[in-house]
Design a binder for these strands. Structure first.
Lengths: 242, 242
DNA sequence: CAGTGGTCTAGACCACGTC
DNA sequence: ACGTGGTCTAGACCACTGC
């Protein structure tokens, strides 16, 4: 996160780094309670206020979650308030319906130039590819193709994804210990090809939203590259600009 | 901004409200330096730390801009680092070229149901409509249609917009004293109609990004409704997900 | 009730920009 | 040298949660 000039780094940022290291090392698992501010202050030999400021930033970046009276928790995708945290699609009607994920295929392959660039792998390194559909109110609205580094996710298979309870990121988190921190999306308008048109039940050539996403875990490491085709007849991609 | 439960509001939020009120009242104009934290602390009879926390939040919301060693300034769209703050379009090549705005038309009308809803006006109230094109590297990439409340922007005309130096929001700020704080965009994929296709030099029916934006000024008051059609052959809509 | 995060204060010192 | 925001500390008290 921090690309500091090397000359100076305030204490609270150093504490922040130490906390991120601890998170990365798995000292506290997703969903777990971390030590209180006072305990951490003692451990790092700084005042509570300094720990507080470090935690403030981590909470702002959604790495931690503060809950007054209870404590500070490691953020997780397995939480109602963060279930589809990266999904910006909302119905035009305004009535929010839960999404349902329908996995279609899952296979191994070697990284092509595109996937290699997105995932910072070498061409030819193993990857896992997943195809799935997102349904809203029983209608297919999103066709996703997901590329993951094969090394880390070697054990991934279709069966795992059948548990409709879990979101995809919850699965990666609980089964493979990989937590996505942030993501970047590139959105364009494209014409539906034959296959996508069939999946989404529209005419070939219909305009679709192409949403390319790269998700990053700790240390800005890309861990997922995905391309989604969104049907925006009854839904739209909502974005708040600060 | 804050939808507090009425039971309790911390002091620093009250200070924040007072600061917003002062901004809204125009006590300090966009770009101007506001009093130092110490002065404000004296004025409001609180400690510097409390003022600091209020300013922290306003800076995070881009209402104020802190500059170490100089002071705190009222944010403005007339600033290199915030010139096209709401424009998410970037070239696929990665090479950033400055956008050029080409105003086409500007006329008065009465609000239809759609515009009235977006701008929170009554149907039939006066509005101003602007059509313009954004060019990157001499090529038309965005066709915008902009709807503004007619009351506030009665004096707006094409001539004003010919100064290519100013961004559109800079103009609204300097000439009409209206500063846009935040915006919400709804993105969809659509097929180019005849008129848009001509402006963007593509075939009718080509897929385009439809970007609908409502911009808000102080007090969450909608002050602009705009619909842009983006050509995403050489550009994409970039979005960072926290 | 005890323990947590949240607020508020006051004062010391640091880093940056200007004169 | 001076004034600004930025950091760090220490301590008091408030608000929320759960036992």
């Amino acid at each position: 996160m921090s690309s500091e000039s090397p000359t100076y780094s305030p204490l609270y940022r150093q504490i922040k780094s130490l906390l991120v290291q601890a998170l990365e090392a798995g000292e506290w698992r997703p969903g777990e309670l971390i030590p209180s501010e006072m305990e951490l202050a003692t451990r790092f030999n700084v005042s509570q206020g300094t720990v507080r400021k470090a935690i403030d930033e981590l909470a702002a970046e959604n790495l931690l979650l503060r809950r007054q009276g209870k404590g500070t928790f490691v953020a997780t995708h397995n939480d109602p308030r963060a279930f589809f945290r990266f999904l910006r699609l909302v119905p035009l009607s305004g009535i929010i319906e839960p999404a349902r994920s329908v996995p279609l295929e899952c296979w191994r392959a070697k990284a092509g130039p595109e996937a290699a660039r997105a995932l910072e792998l070498k061409v030819g390194e193993p990857i896992v590819i997943v195809r799935r559909v997102l349904e809203f109110a029983g209608k297919a609205v999103v066709a996703d193709e997901i590329y993951l580094p094969g090394e880390t996710f070697a054990g991934l298979n279709l069966e795992m994804m059948k548990d409709a309870q879990d979101s995809f990121y919850t699965l990666l988190e609980s089964r493979f210990g990989v937590r996505m921190i942030r993501a970047v999306e590139r959105v364009r308008a494209v014409a539906a090809d034959r296959a996508s048109a069939e999946i989404l039940h529209v005419a070939e050539g219909s305009p679709l939203l192409s949403v390319e996403r790269i998700s990053y875990t700790y240390g800005d490491k890309p861990m997922e590259w995905r391309r989604g085709l969104y049907l925006t007849q009854d839904h739209c991609y909502l974005n708040e600009l600060g």
